[in-house]
């Protein structure tokens, strides 16, 4: 197994986009962990961006505020601590909704029959509601705040996983290698563990990885609409929300306030990119047909 792992790592290192993805991810992780060192918190809640001036007009980057200031708040601080928020939202929402989807999908796929029928009809109902709209309505109903956003994203984020795992289980259950394993006398749990799950779970892991990135965008969209984090919370979407009023720049200078958009925007794009590249890399590693 150790040679196996070594081989996998070697393979990953040969793939430039995988290297880029993992590097970005490591970079973001370091920033998220090191946030208190990079930007020491100045109030009891480190996630609140400190107010550095009462002047609401954006101020360009300076040595003191390297990414500039918007709405009186330090953009650099917001971007750094926003990394933590992005991880928090992405990981918690993805993990929870994936687990819910896994449970529902595997119960449906494994037991079949009327249970499958009922669970899949419920899934259909959830799927028929547009995601963003549902999230907006639920968040509005639960009340504002990051936690409420996360709950609504979880509530409407499990269906794809449920469908994927159910379809895979149904398909794999009929595969001749599963029948062959049963004919060999391998017990049912081992058959599931060794033959069914490995051929069903990896697509789910890959799908979940890719979703982490896009979730951050959805959460940002909700923040952008003013439904997410409270004002002043270190969150890339909220930073962009501040920038909304300054999007057009000043008269005659369209890009005057570029820093208000570019820094949080780039952070977000790179974060999404990182997860997508990592998802792609995992797909390569997990699919033995692509192994050299």
């Amino acid at each position: 197994m150790r040679t196996e792992t070594k081989r996998m790592i070697k393979r990953l290192l040969r793939n430039p986009s995988a290297v880029l993805g993992f590097s970005l991810l490591i970079f973001f992780t370091v920033i998220a962990i090191g946030a208190p060192l990079i930007c020491p918190p100045q109030s009891y809640d480190p996630y609140m961006i400190p107010i550095v001036t009462w002047d609401k007009t954006p101020q360009p980057p300076s040595t003191e505020h390297p990414f500039g200031v918007i709405d009186g708040r330090d953009i650099f601080y917001g971007v750094i601590w926003g990394t933590r928020t992005a991880f928090k939202v992405g990981l918690i929402v993805t993990l929870t909704s994936t687990i819910i989807g896994l449970l529902i999908g595997s119960v449906a796929g494994y037991f079949g029959g009327w249970l499958d029928e009922i669970l899949m009809r419920i899934t259909d109902v959830f799927l028929s509601i547009p995601y963003i709209l549902a999230a907006i309505v639920v968040t509005a109903f639960l009340g504002m705040g990051l936690n409420k956003v996360m709950i609504s994203l979880i509530m409407f984020g499990w269906m794809a996983t449920a469908r994927l795992i159910r379809g895979n289980i149904l398909q794999v259950r009929e595969e001749q290698y599963v029948l062959a394993a049963r004919a060999l006398g391998v017990n049912d749990y081992l058959v599931i563990l060794k033959h069914v799950l490995p051929n069903t779970i990896f697509p789910v892991v890959i799908q979940a990885t890719m979703r982490i990135g896009s979730l951050v965008i959805t959460a940002a969209a909700l923040s952008f609409l003013g439904l997410g984090a409270p004002v002043g919370y270190a969150d890339w979407g909220s930073l962009l929300n501040f920038a909304r009023n300054w999007l057009l720049g000043a008269s005659g200078e369209a890009f005057k306030y570029w820093y208000a958009i570019v820094y949080p925007g780039v952070a977000m794009v790179l974060f999404v990119l990182a997860w997508n590249l990592v998802g792609d890399a995992l797909r390569d590693v997990f699919d033995p047909r692509l192994r050299g």
């Binding site: 595969e175 001749q176 290698y177 062959a180 004919a183 060999l184």
Partner: peptide, 24 residues
Amino acid sequence: KRKKFRRDLQIVFQDPYSSLNPRL
């Protein structure tokens, strides 16, 4: 008894693609 049964009776399937687990 089940083990002996499984040892004594075996099967070879039709499909050379689906009959072997691609991951192993």
